[in-house]
Design a protein around this nucleic acid. Structure first.
Lengths: 221, 221
DNA sequence: CGGCATCCTCTTTGATACTG
DNA sequence: CAGTATCAAAGAGGATGCCG
């Protein structure tokens, strides 16, 4: 993209990461850690392969990403964030916080990936009984399942499945999120098409209310 | 711009404000308050008029901006941020904080406006003697002067001139900022082309050191 | 397969001119 | 003042080819 040529911090930041797709590439590297080219492709549905190559070259040149050549037999390149790249996390946090308002309605054609659950889930949940027994919640959208695990160490969300979860939420991603956030009651969620199996009461232990959520967000938690 | 069609908070945010120029329009409305069309044009050097019109229409449609028709004899339209628009401030703060790293070198062709001083100045300065006598510092780049005023009420930066400032810094914007931040000493600044007139010692009262700056930034100050 | 480069089409931008 | 109209150039999107 052409520079804005504004001597202004915001404009300079956008000169570096304001191109289409660029911040989503950073999102992938932040939420997935170091990625191969194909990992990025599958985490960025819709991107053209030449664009991904272009953006990665520009990000490397800008000192935001560095590439680690992994020698055979693995034979791949790993893309990492530099320190300057890691410093973009607050930008993603701010954008993600602001973007929560659009998550209530999901378009039919929207793509989804397991690791995209991490950000909103960490905003919506908080363990009200951290010394209670550890629990796991299986999130099952059509594909791309994820697991929420709460223990003394806090709440973690990761892609994948767990053997016998304490609770499972199966259905479209936006219903899963609406139920976790408390925007939908369990009754409403079931009526709209979510399947809840197991200890539904767990939601009361983990749901953070709206006021707390905005506070946590204000301090960048 | 076409939607990314990702069911992800960051992608949804970028669907709304990720278009080229959009966040800079928000920047203007945040730092200037309600603006007329021509105020925006002059605060956004380089934008094409049709693009500004397009973006404003989209922002209004998205509920981020609203237009107030001001009846004759003033005969103008005022563009305001809605509450959702104001909520974008943390995004600009995060981008602006990250973008500080690019402010040390200024390109010859970079444009500048007085009110762009506000954001970096508030990051660089802190009154170490808030109960001391109120002081004013005149910032004088080629055009677009601004004034820093420190009093019991805090530090404010505004476009314009003041009668007899306690200190004046005249020279290119990047030297003014480098000197305020402490990245350049007064001696270095003078050697590089900045003209300092008045009570140079004021800088010691107002400069925030690097460690403090990063802390203030971490909590979103 | 992983990591691009090329080619082509379509959309968006940027520059300028013009209007109520 | 507050835009709309026009048009050339740049960039995005999609398909496919190539090479270790």
């Amino acid at each position: 993209m052409k520079s804005y040529n504004h001597y202004c911090t915001v404009a300079k930041a956008l000169d570096a990461v304001g191109d289409r797709w660029t911040l989503l590439i950073i999102r992938e590297l932040v939420s997935q850690g170091p990625c191969r080219y194909t990992d990025l492709m599958s985490g960025l549905p819709g991107i053209a392969t030449n664009l991904l190559a272009d953006r990665l070259a520009f990000l490397e040149e800008s000192g935001i990403v560095w590439r680690e050549p992994v020698p055979p037999p693995v034979a791949a390149t790993l893309y990492h964030l530099t320190d300057a790249g890691e410093d973009l996390k607050p930008v993603l946090d701010a954008l993600g916080t602001w973007g929560v308002r659009f998550m209530s309605k999901s378009h039919e054609t929207d793509q989804f990936r397991s690791h995209w659950f991490k950000r909103p889930v960490s905003m919506f949940l908080k363990d009200r009984a951290p010394d209670g027994p550890p629990v796991s919640i299986q999130l099952s959208p059509e594909d791309y399942p994820a697991v929420i695990e709460a223990s003394r160490d806090g709440i973690r969300t990761r892609p994948g499945r767990v053997e016998s979860p304490d609770l499972e939420l199966a259905g479209p991603p936006h219903l899963i999120l609406a139920t976790l956030s408390g925007r939908l009651s369990v009754k409403e969620a079931k009526a709209t098409g979510l399947t809840l199996t197991g200890r539904v009461a767990l939601l009361n232990r983990l749901r953070r209310d709206r006021a707390e959520a905005s506070v946590a967000n204000a301090v960048g938690a």
